[in-house]
Design a protein around this nucleic acid. Structure first.
Length: 310
DNA sequence: TCAAGAATACGTCAATCACG
DNA sequence: CGTGATTGACGTATTCTTGA
């Protein structure tokens, strides 16, 4: 991206933030969710779900805070303490209010992984490649690669590593690179090996289960060339000696942490969206209820105190 | 049609929570 | 208490909308 474009983006997003601040005064439901929750946290403590009354109170508090000009991000950070997770809040809501859907535990894995992968024998790890394919590592070292959108038979490939034993429990590490230098796709699997996507199907070696038909095939082989940028091979902790190896280990850990956090952030956003949707639908229901009650009240008023203009 | 702005999504960092 | 999970904040990228 050019510097010029960058400037534009910064300007655009600064404006976006200003707009958000303005919208908080206006009370647009979706856009105020974050500031609401932040204030709710301060008001209700870390473990209680917000109520509508609290939301109203918060909206009022927003006005006063805004008028005092408390916008400094550092101060805001101090004020903002953590709220319970969206899953927790929504589940609490669902127990209070029938009809509110629960956020399932580990729902994302079930949603995100195609059925033909989920159907395999209890994979220990499932990863998605940059091209949308899924690679699953089963207990015992079996690797399964599948293509979403295809049916269970076509999109499924099971690779069993023949030249390595079962990985120690919890030690499965798979990293993938978008593309290697020769244009093929590579997955890095335990045992300092690489799963390489063949461009030509007939080149599939005999030591692996070759895919059938026109499906892509994969080879397990030792990485002959230097690893792509950002990918560091796993090494057992006991084998680390030189500072360079320690640095590589640190880099690998960092990459792993970033990858995990990336996924966690995606999942968090998904839950947040679900949570906001839930709140919005709840508001709609309560508004209808409120309207009905007001109408009922008016009716009762008419009945109980008929006009006595004598 | 095009540029500007708005909306949305993503990746990362850091703080905090929750659990063993 | 250590560690993984969660989430707010922030910067950036991409897509959509709108007005000239």
């Amino acid at each position: 991206m050019s510097k010029c474009g960058r400037k534009k983006y910064i300007k655009t997003n600064l404006r976006q933030m200003e707009t958000l601040d303005c919208q908080q005064d206006g009370g647009v439901p979706g856009s105020v969710a974050e500031s609401e929750s932040a204030h709710l946290q301060a008001q209700t403590g870390p473990n209680s779900a917000p109520t509508l009354a609290q939301v109203v109170a918060v909206a009022e508090a927003d006005d006063s805070a805004e008028s005092e000009g408390v916008t400094d991000s550092q101060k805001r950070r101090e004020i903002l303490s953590r709220r319970p997770s969206y899953r927790k809040i929504l589940n609490e809501l669902s127990s209070d209010v029938p009809g509110v859907p629960k956020i399932e535990e580990e729902k994302s894995e079930e949603e995100g992984v195609p059925p033909h992968v989920a159907a395999m024998a209890v994979p220990t790890s499932i990863y998605q490649t940059s091209t949308g394919q899924y690679i699953a590592i089963a207990q015992g070292g079996a690797i399964q690669i599948s293509t979403p959108g295809s049916d269970g038979v076509q999109g499924l490939q099971a690779l069993t590593m023949t030249n390595s034993g079962a990985p120690p429990p919890g030690a499965t590490i798979v990293q993938y690179a978008a593309q290697s230098a020769d244009g093929t796709q590579q997955f890095f699997v335990p045992g300092s090996q690489v799963v390489v996507q063949d461009e030509e199907t007939e080149l599939a070696p005999s030591h692996m289960a070759a895919a059938t038909g026109d499906m892509p095939t994969y080879q397990i082989r030792a990485p002959a060339t230097a690893l792509p940028q950002g990918v560091v091979m796993a090494a057992s902790p006991g084998s680390l000696h030189s500072p360079q190896q320690l640095a590589e280990e640190a880099t690998r850990k960092r990459e792993l942490r970033l990858m995990k956090n990336r996924e966690a952030a995606k999942e968090c956003r998904r839950r947040k969206k679900e949570y906001v949707k839930c709140l919005e639908s709840r508001v709609a229901v309560l508004e209808v209820q409120n309207k009905k009650l007001i109408e009922e009240l008016e009716t009762l008023k008419d009945i109980c105190s008929p006009k006595t203009d004598v």
